[in-house]
């Protein structure tokens, strides 16, 4: 018994499949994943944002990004509909909402189930346990599928670089956060429109604000469930669509959207050869039978002909 067992384990090892057993177990049998329990995040409250652009400036500085085309002091750019680019990880736009001018800060939302990570065919994106979604330029091929996949349209590409173009996006200041520092934008914000902390604490904090000021806030924490949830959360005084945030993204995590298609791969691998070989074998067999019948028919015809000939010969003889 023990020998055969050892043998079996040997085969398993040889096939490189020992990971099946020694690998990590799923957190719950129902396959529902809550994300890293103590992951960090940021809560943005647009009722507190004054559109000063100092977060843009701080972001530019701590991430050593190229100098901006227009000075960070110039607030006229707020009315343009800007987005993140290869040179700016975060931007603030102003919208004329039903409650007057309202600001929106845009940067990577650091999804709990990142679409970019699910889409990347070299696993360049990682969801860290701290909450940040990081990017490793040293393996990036530059296919830009992450940009197709991202529902928030965050990753930008260095199209003008010839040799080493990279995807550029907010890192939630991961290098700073693991040193115990605050993200650049959060640290500089003069009005506490940005709060940094554990995601679960931020959600409690946001709920509390909504509870205390039900007239001021929309009863929805953006990012709690969007696309499976994000580590960057939002509170708003006006419906999110008024500040150009999409409310039609749904709550399905990106990795689930492609899971069905990917799961059909092993089914094709397992069954197509069986089906196709079967069809081949059926055709070969019917060919064989047809050939056999043809030979039989020829034989019979020959036999009949020779019998006929023999008969007629016999007749002639008699």
């Amino acid at each position: 018994m023990s020998i055969s067992r050892r043998k079996f384990l040997g085969w398993v090892g040889a096939a490189g499949l020992s990971t099946v057993w020694s690998g990590p177990a799923s957190a719950a049998t129902t396959k529902h994943f809550e994300g890293y329990p103590d992951s960090l995040g940021v809560l943005f409250d647009n009722l507190l944002c004054i559109g000063c652009r100092t977060c843009e400036e701080a972001c530019n500085k701590v991430n050593e990004l190229p100098p901006p085309e227009q000075s960070f002091k110039d607030l006229s750019v707020l009315d343009q509909k800007r987005r993140t680019t290869a040179k700016t990880y975060t931007i603030v736009n102003r919208y004329n909402s039903s409650k007057g001018p309202m600001f929106r800060k845009i940067q990577c939302n650091h999804c709990l189930e990142p679409a970019c990570a699910s889409a990347c065919f070299v696993s360049a994106f990682k969801k860290t346990k701290e909450g940040a979604v990081t990017y490793d330029a040293s393996v990036c091929v530059g296919c830009r599928y992450c940009m197709i996949a991202c529902p928030f349209e965050i990753p930008a590409y260095e199209y003008d670089k010839v040799l080493e173009p990279r995807i550029m996006k907010c890192t939630m200041c991961y290098p700073r956060v693991i040193k115990g520092l605050l993200p650049g934008c959060v640290e500089i914000c003069p009005t506490e429109a940005l709060s940094f902390g554990k995601r679960k604490d931020l959600i409690r904090m946001a709920r509390d604000r909504i509870h205390r000021y039900p007239d001021r806030y929309v009863d929805h924490i953006y990012g709690e469930h969007e696309m499976g949830g994000t580590n960057w959360l939002y509170l708003s005084g006006v419906p999110y669509t008024e500040v150009d945030m999409r409310e039609d993204l749904g709550v399905t995590p990106a990795s689930e959207l492609t899971a069905g298609a990917l799961s059909s791969v092993p089914m094709i691998v397992g069954l197509w050869p069986v089906l196709l070989t079967g069809i081949y074998a059926i055709n070969k067999r019917s060919d064989k039978i047809a050939k056999h019948e043809r030979e039989l028919a020829v034989d019979q015809a020959e036999k009949a002909a020779s019998e006929e000939a023999a008969k007629s010969k016999a007749k002639e003889d008699s």
Binding site: A119, C120, F121, V122, S123, A124, V139, Y145, S255
Partner: peptide, 13 residues
Amino acid sequence: YPFIVQQGTTSVL
């Protein structure tokens, strides 16, 4: 790279 350096097996690509 997707074959020899790092396999992003969750990607359709």
